[in-house]
Design a protein around this nucleic acid. Structure first.
Length: 641
RNA sequence: GCUGGAGUAGCUCAGUCGGUAGAGCAGGGGUUUUGUAAACCUCAGGUCGUGGGUUCGAUUCCCUCCUCCAGCUCCA
């Protein structure tokens, strides 16, 4: 029967239909609820519109907003609706591209006058009207020449440029209402599906991302099937804004970056410095436990050293200009490795010395383009938690395995439980022996597999001097931040002619691994602030306990308690100002101090304290010794609660 | 670096169609002696980002520079 086809439905059952039936007809036939949420479909693995005709035996899958692809289709369609609204309001505007992105969509426009926030509102209103019309998205396939003619008439020069890059002789257009756009689709069936959207920001963007091309205006937006989801998204954005480490850094007196000092240069205030100290102490202790030797190296060195290491070549654009002292050029260090290498080279190394692990909290300076600086996240002066491991080739896998465990345990202790891990392999341009590359990449891969860690492979994403593993931590808001990096280096050991003496008395070249766990302390601190929203766990908190006498009659006893706590190693403050207890509590809450010890008549009499925990409230009256033991335990555990 | 936006007291912001500026919070002094998120009174605080120009006069208008904010392929 030539006019019948068999379709495997989403529930894997088979059913016969007439040839040419559309996906949405089938959906109506099988399950009305499924059809309602459907945005697009997968037919034999290919993503298609719901209006697609099925002409052969097929398997279909439904794509709703719950799927990654469904979301992309939804957002992409929203960008078309936005583009129509923009051209309705500003007919002279030319279209560039309008894809979906990780969260939402954008469309790039060429328009003389910049868009204003008022324009955004007008565009949103225009979109509302388009959505109300509930027009179908219609797919059209036309010959390339016809498409060129069509866009030429409209003066859409960017579309013409895109078409000229296309290899197919057929071009796909999508139309809804009277708006036609070059687009491979697919799209949602009707504009009416997109009811809940918000245009979030305007920004400049280069055509095809190149600075040499003209600057376009980009409008970003987001959309959802339901109002609840949109509201939730907007609420999340607000929460992220509230957690901004730049705001919290000022409010909590953690750090500052001042004009007078210079862009990207951080002043760590006492409270921020206290947190950093705790992290550093923890870091040092862990490194010593794990066989690292700690070193210190200078901030500058003769330019010659950087020539030898190759940095003046491949890293030039990130380096501050050299300074000349006594007719000799000196370079502010962008990295620590040359120093570590010279320490390695300071004597003849035996295979017995390997692996040699040198670690340093080394402060580096890099010239970052002014436009990319951002609070603590991207700075010009920063401290790397750096280490270099010098290994025999047969030690690689074990050392990588140890490194992974070590990194993850430190990140976990600091409050990060979720990660994204990437393995980057050999790029097209590389140096070193391909066999070594292979060995090193294998060592990285096997270590990841042995540890049962999920990872993605970035083929060709390694540096020219070696493959690497990157770990991104996922913060409380679900955002990923690159911190840990474990990189092989086949370049520098060559350049410095590193060797070790093997068992047979001959010289061999060690393999070197660079690694940073937290990345830079500045950046990591920024992430940490946003992760905890400034409310640090007890072990990290700059002020751990504040003692609050209710009236000045309790000041003496309160001072005793404060001294007692201080003697036990806690970071304590006493707030004996002439203020009401409510006022003092409010301040302590705003400062996000983990514990408040409130002391009134009753507590003095009972030789006790009333304990209030940040954000949780009154925990009741405690015996002083009892609460000291309890909190000491909390610090010792580095509990992230 | 580029495009757009912004820079007024420690912070958040108002204001001046050109005549050198205000509010709340924070800070100082006082009154009050207070039981789990803001008591009351009072005082002090600013070269209005920088340098220049126009003007009798600029924080305001114009230009330069600095800094900050958003973004700068996630490719129909």
């Amino acid at each position: 029967m030539a006019d019948k086809i068999t379709v495997i439905l989403p529930d894997k059952s088979k059913k016969e239909y007439k040839k040419g039936i559309t996906v949405s007809d089938i959906l109506k036939d099988i399950d009305s609820e499924l059809a309602e949420n459907a945005l697009a479909a997968k037919m034999n693995g290919e993503i298609v519109d719901l209006s697609k005709n099925i002409n052969e035996d097929s398997e279909i899958e439904i794509l709703s907003f719950d799927s990654e692809v469904g979301k992309k289709v939804f957002w992409h369609s929203t960008s078309h609706v936005m583009a129509q609204a923009v051209q309705n309001l500003f007919p002279e505007t030319k279209l560039a591209i309008g894809p979906s992105i990780e969260e939402g969509f954008y469309y790039d426009f060429d328009k003389k006058e910049p868009f204003t926030p008022d324009d955004l509102e007008k565009i949103e209103q225009g979109m509302q009207e388009i959505v109300k019309e509930n027009q179908p998205f219609v797919r059209k396939e036309i010959p390339k020449s016809e498409a060129i003619k069509f866009f030429k008439e409209k003066g859409e020069k960017y579309k013409l440029e895109i078409i000229s890059d296309l290899e197919d002789e057929k071009v796909i257009l999508y139309q809804h209402d009277d708006f036609v756009d070059l687009c491979k689709g697919p799209h949602v069936p009707f504009t009416g599906v997109i009811k809940n959207f918000k245009l979030t920001s305007i920004a400049g963007a280069y055509w095809k991302g190149s600075e040499k091309n003209p600057m376009l205006q980009r409008i970003y937006g987001i959309s959802f099937p339901s109002k609840e989801e949109l509201d939730e998204y907007l609420k999340r954005m607000e929460e992220i804004k509230k957690r901004d480490h730049r705001t919290l850094g000022r409010e909590l007196e953690l750090f500052s970056i001042l004009d007078e000092v210079g862009p990207g240069l951080v002043l760590w205030h006492p409270k921020g410095a206290q947190i950093r100290r705790v992290i550093e102490d923890f870091w040092v202790e862990e490194h010593q436990k794990n066989g690292y030797q700690l070193i210190y190296t200078p901030h500058i060195a003769r330019l010659h050293l950087w020539e030898k290491s190759g940095h003046t070549g491949f890293y030039q654009e990130y380096m501050y200009s050299p300074m000349v002292v006594e007719n000799e050029a000196y370079q502010l260090k962008p990295m620590n490795c040359p120093f570590h290498i010279l320490i390695y080279k300071s004597k003849i190394r035996s295979y017995r010395d390997l692996p040699l692990k040198l670690a340093e909290l080394g402060t580096c300076y890099r010239y970052e383009r002014s436009g990319v600086l951002h609070g603590l996240m991207r700075v010009r002066g920063f401290t790397m938690d750096d280490a270099h491991l010098f290994c025999k080739p047969d030690q690689l896998e074990e050392e990588v395995l140890k490194l992974l465990d070590f990194s993850l345990s430190i990140l976990r202790t600091l409050g990060f439980e979720k990660y994204e891990i990437y393995l980057s392999t050999r790029p097209d341009k590389f140096i070193g022996d391909p066999q070594n590359w292979e060995k090193a990449t294998q060592a990285l891969r096997q270590a990841l597999e042995k540890d049962n860690l999920q990872f993605q492979v970035d083929e060709g994403g390694g540096a020219f001097y070696g493959p690497k593993i990157d770990i991104k931590i996922i913060d409380a808001m679900g955002r990923a931040w690159q911190c840990t990096t474990i990189q092989f280096d086949f370049n520098i050991p060559e350049r410095f002619d590193l060797t070790f003496v093997g068992q047979d008395g001959k010289f061999y070249r060690p393999i070197m691994i660079h690694r940073a766990l937290l990345g830079s302390l500045e950046r990591f601190f920024g992430v940490l602030i946003e992760h905890y929203a400034g409310a640090f766990p007890l072990w990290l908190s700059p002020v751990q306990i504040v003692v609050l006498p209710i009236t000045d009659e309790q000041n003496l006893y309160s001072a005793e308690i404060k001294n007692r706590l201080q003697g036990e190693g806690f970071r304590v403050e006493l707030d004996d100002r002439n203020e009401k207890i409510n006022y003092k509590i409010r301040e302590a809450e705003k400062e996000k101090i983990p514990y408040m010890f409130i002391i009134g008549k009753k507590e003095v009499q009972n030789k006790s304290v009333s304990v209030r925990k940040h954000k949780q409230g009154d925990l009741g009256e405690f015996d002083v010794e009892e609460i000291i033991v309890k909190l000491k335990q909390e610090v010792k555990n580095k509990s992230s609660q």
